[in-house]
Design a protein around this nucleic acid. Structure first.
Lengths: 323, 323
DNA sequence: CTGAAAGCGCTTACAG
DNA sequence: CTGAAAGCGCTTACAG
């Protein structure tokens, strides 16, 4: 490249990075050669010396989580604008697997990582941040240098859901929660129970089961709740997949939804608007979360050691046909 | 690292890569230091010299495509086993965007790429393969050195769908196809029409519309078909999202599914088993496709210049409630 | 405005 | 069994 134009590598570098300090004639000749040869600077070489690889990592729990692709899309688009390419991996909710993933990302010298943490890995992640890696934790609230956290206010979401059930005249209400025990998941339960603190008189004490956070889990959860008390008239599910499972189970057990049993989900995945009856749920502004996550990651990359305040985004109840 | 143990970098390299040619004592001391310091070889430096970056790219059309995450998961798992990390990007079905994505992957010296090609980019992709990049094209059939292709036999799938509609007594059948005009998409139409070549007498000539391959597109497609002839009794949709859209549209227009109108989708996404009635569809063995794609990619990486035969995987009709 | 020297952290090809 | 030298393709810090 350099000798094809008859200049030093240093000059090519200057032009390609638009550093200034070259004549217009040189610029033109170099740029022509770049075009002709389809020259691309080698990011490996550049990264080796600048300590910036031009990559970011996105680590999800499970790629097949319907929650995930929308996030990936948003994050990728933003990353692309700053010229970064995205590594993509999942931790399967397993701390050890997450550690492997980070080891690999570290060896590729990623500039930063956005992570949906595996349960109980806040300490592990803090250690990476301490080691100087800019980190954004999604869906949890952590404060630490080099680390930012962005999440949805699902405590409030669960609270809205329960209040909606109460306000529409339901009085025997259960929650199908997730058995994946991580502090942030408990927030939804807390918000749910809080709604009953000043419930109308005659409201039964709320019921709770914890199951796998899947469609099948939702079915099982409803079954178990109905065994406890068959006259339930309202359900809040930890997520939409579970709500759909509960809805299927209710219908095949002969309950009409919403007449006999009202169901509220959480997350507003695409499926929720397509099942019958369409699911009432909590809507999350995922594009916003993606945008905030990558924005704050870039901030951390530019300002090492900083410690931005946790960001908690509001959520919104969407009433459809299942309540 | 090297001076901490008191050996040369060369010796560390030998131990870390298990090349042999070191004493057991050295091995132990180096490995201890590796453990203590959490040493990770710098893949940028290694890649610069070995011309292997330890990364592969996965380029999809659109991350929010329900078809996609299952593929990503499988590919990631296989890639991880061979110690490679996965770049992830989407081309939005846009050739120019795809070129940008490849430029970026190229500059990161990926060892190979699995791509769901943007329409009309076979030539573009062949050029990368010619430049020496191992490439696996998903969902299309191309033959070229350094390039492999893996796809599902959706021509046969469409044929099975149409034959199923005919076999269950439907005689006025329409197909809602995709308006995204790329040769591989036409195969489904071909398979569909072929089924009518020896249809029972009294079968009406099949109808076809082409719309956006989305839920909304499916709704519009059905509307347009029903305007043409309101007595349709069978529909084959290009994909499940469109089938669900068509089903919603049919139901709100007062058609009973499947009594008045039978609907067959294609792809068997999760949603298809959850809508009501549950959708009859064509099932694709996606884990298998992922496994084959990454397997052949690794083969191409190890055997530069080779030209494996295109792989076309069989598909299977799954009869549920919508027919 | 331009380039020669040094070095990022490894591996390749040798020599001992 | 071990290491010194050279170099991958860039950028940093200089000198001219």
């Amino acid at each position: 490249m350099a000798n094809r134009v008859g200049v030093s590598p240093r000059t090519v570098s200057r032009v390609v990075n638009d550093e200034g300090g070259f004549s217009e004639a040189t610029r033109t000749r170099v740029l022509e050669a770049v075009e002709d040869l389809g020259y691309q600077p080698n990011m490996l070489a550049r990264g080796l010396i600048t300590r910036r690889s031009g990559t970011v990592g996105l680590v999800g729990v499970d790629m097949t989580d319907p929650f995930f692709p929308a996030m990936a899309e948003g994050i990728q688009n933003e990353a692309r604008e700053t010229g970064r390419t995205m590594f993509f991996a999942s931790n399967d909710g397993d701390p050890q697997r997450q550690a492997e993933v980070f080891r690999s990302l570290l060896s590729h010298a990623v500039d930063g990582v956005i992570v949906f943490p595996a349960p109980g890995t806040v300490e592990q992640l803090a250690a990476y941040a301490r080691g100087g890696m800019p980190l954004v934790i999604v869906d949890d609230i952590v404060e630490f240098p080099n680390l930012a956290s962005v999440s949805f206010d699902l405590e409030d979401g669960a609270n809205q859901a329960a209040r909606h059930l109460l306000a529409t005249g339901r009085s025997r209400i259960g929650m199908i929660s997730s058995e994946v025990t991580v502090p942030r998941n408990r927030r939804r339960e807390r918000g749910f129970f809080q709604a009953f603190e000043n419930a109308p008189t005659g409201t039964a004490p709320p019921e709770l089961v914890r199951v796998q956070p899947t469609v099948t889990g939702g079915s099982n959860g409803l079954q178990r709740l109905l065994e406890r008390r068959s006259d339930l008239d309202g359900i809040f599910a930890f997520n939409d997949s579970m709500a759909v499972g509960a809805m299927r189970e209710a219908q095949s057990a002969g309950y009409r939804v919403p007449d006999d049993l009202a169901i509220v989900g959480c997350n507003d995945i695409e499926m929720s608007g397509l099942v019958s009856p369409r699911l009432t749920t909590i809507r999350l502004d995922r594009p916003r979360l993606s945008a905030e996550a990558i924005r704050v990651l870039h901030y951390l990359i530019e300002a090492p050691g900083s410690n931005p305040a946790p960001l908690v985004l509001p959520v919104q109840l969407v009433v459809r046909e299942s309540t």
